[in-house]
Design a binder for these strands. Structure first.
Lengths: 338, 338
DNA sequence: AGCGACAATGTGAACGCTAACATTTTTGCC
DNA sequence: GGCAAAAATGTTAGCGTTCACATTGTCGCT
């Protein structure tokens, strides 16, 4: 291939400068602070830039300015629609001020998250956004020392590393327990992931506590494995009916699972909610459309991203931040399934 | 805040070097080619690194080596599960060789895509991955001149900028037309996005061509707007029944829409497929679970990402690439809805 | 005409690292 | 013990920008 034989050798600031008969600094100014250069020179330089197709090297620029205009975010899974929503909102908010989002996927693994944090920090992001609030001491120290804004999202904590934007998964679980009790269900179950998903664990903890408050001490728990897919939710229903045929209500750790469970019930002729009530978590886009529709908790996925973005921008612009911890709450959505 | 008053001043290679009593270069070697330094020095240096919590500055490293170990990818939407799958696969594949993925979200806007390409190229990625095959001459030129591998994905083209990994959206639409004809449907419709979604357009084109081949020249087309959500699909069904009450089969441009349409039919008591047959596109994770389940086309979302990743890695390692155009095909999945 | 003020442009040095080469130390061998 | 080869370490220069400061040019005003 001729391509590899003739490396096209990108043009640099100096190449533009030479051809325009000015110094490199002037070219830099044309790009960055055009107001400081005479209109005639500006046009001359600009035309050379256009002709050469010159693109400033941000790597060099970043080194010189010690600012990368990148914000790193680490999420448990790219393919999970809720985090994708948050990332889209974050990305859009940051983009308004020229910041790029660098996304890392930890695949729900804490060890991998640690590595990612380290790898990301090496790239000198101007801020870093994390999912969840629980992480190793070592990583907390690393982050605290990085000297950039850190936002922990998707849950709340009393002592964030820096900033925190989310809602209380625990309280949501608690509320669901109360609702289920009030609706008269007494033999309740939980189907969801636990290992490596601290937020789901928090929901279950809140759920348990809520039930205990009403004198219901036992929860039938079915832990599911890695991809919290609808298929896994359907399998969860089957396991539930096998192991605890007496169950009359089930709380799924996520709507992705719940939808699978709900559709499985429809297919197997199990009346929802008469024979088995179902509550989900997350209010996915189809949760309102199934028949029966899914009772669930709506989570401010988009807002988490946009508020996080605004906090980060505020910090980077040196503005004061009123609250280090932002509780965006959640909404209980009563529909047909429970 | 004391934080802003005392910038913690990160340690550099030289700080480590001084404290360990060696030169900066030796520290660099400890990190990069530990085999080249004596075990005793290695340990001494390493302990200083640990004590100081030194993290190499990749920005500087990138400038020095003129390689960023970043691959840029531009997708139409982060929140679309299919592209998210592709990105997860790509990210995972690249991660095995220490490459980071930089994702840009064009929000289905060609102009925004152009800007993004430019912004991304400024960051000097080692490769760039695009969604789709149609773009402006200017951007094609920019990319060709960037001197890095370029992969166009999610569709096929006879003359890619560089590499191409995807399947034929046109052929898929064609196949669906044939299937629909064979099943005896004669008054067919299409519901989907067209503007700013060239791949969806390709599907419709293939669909039209396929129908024409069987003597069916008219397709009832309902174009839908921006978020191709299930709700929009449901609204599409309502519009279809209003405008073309005689339609007996509908092809949705994506499963996300189709699922919404399907559930709307269920809710309105419209028998699927007896009264109205439905075919989707994309085989989303719940498409097999609805009742009736959705007849659709399965698209190699994951493979597009992983194969793209492998091609990129091969190129970057200087390995020969057998085929510049990789057709991963698709699978027609017959289920209950048509 | 001459002065100061401001606008426009230029000149080093620095950002933190690594490639390439140079030097020193160690090792094996007769 | 002395020598060459190999191993370990050090030195210099640069990657492509921007910052801080220095210089030159322009203009209005007395």
């Amino acid at each position: 291939m001729s391509k590899t034989l003739l490396p096209p050798k990108r043009s640099r600031l100096e190449d533009v400068a030479r051809q325009a008969g000015v110094s490199a600094q002037t070219v830099s100014r044309v790009l960055r602070k055009p107001g400081l250069v005479a209109e005639a020179t500006r046009q001359r330089v600009q035309s050379v830039i256009d002709r050469l197709g010159y693109l400033p090297d941000l790597v060099a620029s970043n080194l010189a300015t010690s600012s990368t205009r990148m914000v790193a975010a680490i999420i448990p899974s790219l393919a999970s629609s809720v985090f994708a929503d948050t990332m889209q909102a974050l990305s859009a908010t940051l983009a308004t001020n020229g910041y790029q989002l660098l996304i890392g996927d930890s695949n729900y693994s804490p060890e991998h998250e640690d590595e990612l944090v380290q790898a990301m920090l090496g790239r000198r992001p101007d801020a870093i956004v994390l999912t969840g609030t629980s992480r190793s001491k070592k990583v907390r120290a690393l982050l605290a020392r990085a000297g950039v804004p850190v936002v922990e999202t998707w849950n709340l904590t009393a002592n964030p590393i820096d900033l925190c934007v989310g809602f209380s998964n625990h309280a949501a679980g608690f509320d669901i327990a109360r609702y289920i009790f009030r609706r008269g269900y007494r033999r309740v179950a939980f189907i969801g992931r636990l290992r490596n998903d601290p937020r789901s664990e928090d929901r279950l903890r809140g759920f348990r506590e809520g039930l205990r408050g009403h004198g219901m001490s036992s929860v039938r728990v079915i832990e599911v494995g890695d991809p919290a897919s609808p298929e896994v939710g359907a399998a969860g229903i089957d396991e539930l009916l096998r192991r605890y045929p007496d169950a009359d209500a089930v709380f799924f750790g996520s709507d992705r699972l719940a939808i699978g469970g709900l559709l499985a019930c429809v297919r197997r002729g199990i009346a929802v909610p008469e024979r088995l009530a179902i509550v989900g978590f997350g209010d996915f886009e189809i949760s309102s459309l199934t028949m029966p529709s899914l009772t669930t908790i709506a989570v401010p996925t988009w807002e988490i991203g946009s508020i996080t973005g605004e906090l980060v921008l505020a910090r980077l612009a040196g503005r004061e931040i009123p609250e280090r911890i932002v509780d965006l709450g959640y909404r209980f959505i009563q529909r047909e399934s429970a």
